[in-house]
Lab assay of single mutants.
Amino acid sequence: MQIFVKTLTGKTITSEVEPSDTIENVKAKIQDKEGIPPDQQRLIFAGKQLEDGRTLSDYNIQKESTLHLVLR
């Protein structure tokens, strides 16, 4: 499924993921596309910071959901 990751600069990254993918996994995909190390990434969805060990389905993230990427 496709999800969108919006950066603070307003850029939107499209990523191909599975509901069973972990947040860590998603951060790795963002690193592949943007070159941002996962340890600098914080992903936010519905006002919550997403934890690395959890999966997209844990957070009820569905296709075409938009996550927000904040850098630390």
Rank of each mutant, 00 (worst) to 15 (best):
K27S: 02
I44S: 08
V26L: 14
A28L: 14
R72I: 14
D52R: 04
T14F: 09
S65Y: 08
T66R: 05
G10Q: 03
A46I: 06
Q41C: 08
S20L: 09
R54H: 11
I30Q: 01
V17P: 01
I44W: 15
N60S: 09
Q40F: 09
T55K: 10
P38A: 15
M1R: 03
F4C: 04
E64G: 15
M1K: 03
F45Y: 12
E24A: 15
V26Q: 01
D32H: 11
I23G: 01
L50R: 00
F4H: 09
H68Y: 15
V5H: 00
K48H: 11
A46R: 14
Y59L: 05
G53I: 07
L69Q: 02
Q2N: 11
K63I: 06
G47S: 04
D39C: 12
S57I: 08
G35N: 07
S20W: 14
D32N: 11
I36C: 04
G35E: 04
D39G: 11
P37I: 05
Y59G: 00
I44Q: 06
G47Y: 05
G35M: 05
V26D: 00
I3E: 02
K29D: 06
E18S: 14
E18I: 11
K48T: 11
I61R: 01
G10I: 02
T55H: 05
Q31S: 13
K29L: 11
L43I: 07
N25Y: 12
L67R: 00
R54P: 04
T66C: 05
I3L: 06
P37Y: 05
P19Q: 06
M1N: 04
Q62H: 10
D52Q: 04
S65E: 07
V26E: 01
Q2S: 10
K6F: 07
L56F: 04
K48W: 07
Q31V: 06
E18P: 03
G10V: 02
S15F: 15
L8M: 13
Q40S: 09
V70Q: 09
N25K: 14
D21F: 08
L67F: 04
T7S: 07
L8E: 14
L43C: 01
T14V: 14
I44K: 04
R72N: 11
H68N: 08
A28V: 11
F4E: 03
K11W: 10
G35Q: 05
P19D: 06
E16S: 11
L71N: 07
I3Q: 00
I3N: 00
E51V: 08
K48N: 09
S15Q: 15
D52L: 05
T7D: 07
F45H: 06
N60P: 03
E24C: 08
T22L: 11
T22W: 04
V17S: 03
D52S: 07
T12F: 10
L69W: 01
I30M: 03
T7R: 08
E51S: 07
F4V: 06
T22R: 07
G10K: 04
F45D: 00
N25R: 14
V70D: 05
T7H: 06
Q2A: 08
H68P: 00
R42G: 07
T22D: 02
Q2K: 14
V26T: 02
R72H: 11
Q41D: 02
D58Y: 15
I23S: 02
M1G: 04
P37C: 06
K29Y: 10
L56T: 02
G47N: 06
Q62F: 10
F45W: 09
K11D: 07
D21P: 01
S20T: 12
V17Q: 05
T14K: 09
D39K: 10
T7Q: 06
K48Y: 09
A28M: 14
I36G: 04
F4N: 05
I61A: 02
L71Y: 09
M1D: 03
D21L: 05
G47A: 04
K6W: 06
T55E: 03
G53Q: 11
D39N: 12
K11Q: 09
T22K: 08
V5W: 03
K27C: 02
S15C: 15
I23E: 01
K11F: 10
G35K: 06
I23V: 10
I36N: 03
G10H: 05
G10P: 01
L67W: 00
Q2F: 13
S20C: 08
K63H: 15
D39L: 09
I13E: 02
K6E: 07
N60E: 07
P19M: 09
H68K: 08
P38W: 14
L43T: 00
K63P: 15
Q2E: 09
Q62I: 12
E18K: 14
Q40I: 11
L8N: 12
P19C: 06
E16A: 09
K6R: 11
D32A: 14
Q62P: 09
G47H: 05
G10C: 07
I44T: 08
L71T: 09
E16V: 12
G53Y: 11
K6P: 01
L69V: 05
N25T: 14
I13V: 06
E18F: 14
V5D: 01
L56E: 00
Q49L: 15
T9M: 11
M1L: 06
E34G: 06
Q41T: 09
Q41R: 02
K11C: 09
T66L: 10
K6N: 05
E64Y: 14
V17A: 06
T66G: 02
L69S: 02
Q49P: 11
L43F: 05
L50G: 00
V26P: 01
I61G: 01
T22P: 04
L67N: 00
Q41I: 13
T12R: 08
T66E: 06
N60R: 07
V17C: 08
S65Q: 08
F45G: 01
V17G: 02
I23M: 03
N25M: 15
I23Y: 00
Q62Y: 09
K33M: 13
A46G: 12
D21V: 03
K48E: 12
S57F: 10
Q62E: 10
Q31K: 09
K11S: 07
Q31W: 15
K27A: 03
S20Q: 10
E64S: 11
I13A: 02
E18V: 13
L8A: 13
R54F: 12
E34F: 15
N25D: 12
Q62S: 10
I3H: 01
L50C: 02
V5S: 01
T22C: 03
E16P: 05
